Amino acid sequence: MSPEVFVEILKEALAMVILLVSAIILPSLFVGLIVAVFQAATSINEQTMSFLPRLIVTLLALSWGGHWLVQKLMDFTFNMVERIPEVLG
């Protein structure tokens, strides 16, 4: 296996990880930011007020985007399996 093939596979794998994780984390990040601004404006420092909305949004993102996430992961896996001859030879 040449170093170029290894670097290309690593680059594709890291891009896939970033894409899948950001699809789950970014909605939670935005909701957390909105709740934090609301808490700062009202001086309410309740921990569950920041945790529960982020948990709900994360679960909704997983349920709504789960099919897409699994499909992207399966496409990547099939692509890697098809590239086995390139890596070996």
Rank of each mutant, 00 (worst) to 15 (best):
L88V: 08
P27H: 05
L55V: 08
E86V: 12
V21D: 09
S22Y: 06
I25M: 11
K11L: 09
F51V: 10
L33T: 12
N79R: 15
A23L: 14
M1E: 06
T58M: 10
E4C: 03
E86F: 09
F38Q: 11
A15Y: 14
T42E: 06
I24S: 02
T77P: 00
E8V: 06
K72D: 02
P27Q: 07
S63M: 11
Q71P: 02
S50M: 10
A23M: 15
V81F: 08
I44F: 07
V81P: 01
L60V: 14
S63D: 05
A41I: 08
L62A: 00
V21C: 12
V5W: 11
K11H: 12
A15L: 15
E86K: 13
P85V: 03
T77L: 05
I34P: 02
L10T: 09
F76R: 05
V31M: 08
L26P: 00
G89D: 04
W64C: 06
W68D: 07
K72W: 06
F30C: 03
L19D: 10
F6K: 14
N79Q: 14
F76E: 03
K72A: 06
E4V: 09
P85K: 06
N79S: 13
M74E: 12
E4A: 10
W68M: 06
H67K: 15
L29G: 07
L14M: 11
V37S: 03
S28M: 14
E86I: 10
F78T: 11
V81D: 01
G65I: 01
L73K: 06
P85I: 01
T48N: 14
L20A: 00
T77Y: 09
K11M: 08
Q71K: 15
P85D: 00
I24W: 05
E82K: 15
A15N: 13
L88T: 04
V87C: 03
F30S: 04
L62T: 03
T58P: 02
P85R: 07
I34V: 15
I25S: 04
E4M: 09
L62D: 03
E4T: 11
F6A: 12
F78R: 15
G65A: 00
Q47A: 13
M74T: 13
L60Q: 06
I84W: 06
G89R: 13
P53S: 00
L69D: 01
V57Y: 00
V37N: 04
F76K: 03
L59C: 07
V57C: 05
V31L: 09
M49W: 09
A61S: 10
N45A: 09
M74I: 15
Q39S: 01
A15C: 08
N79Y: 12
F6C: 08
F76M: 05
T77D: 04
F51T: 13
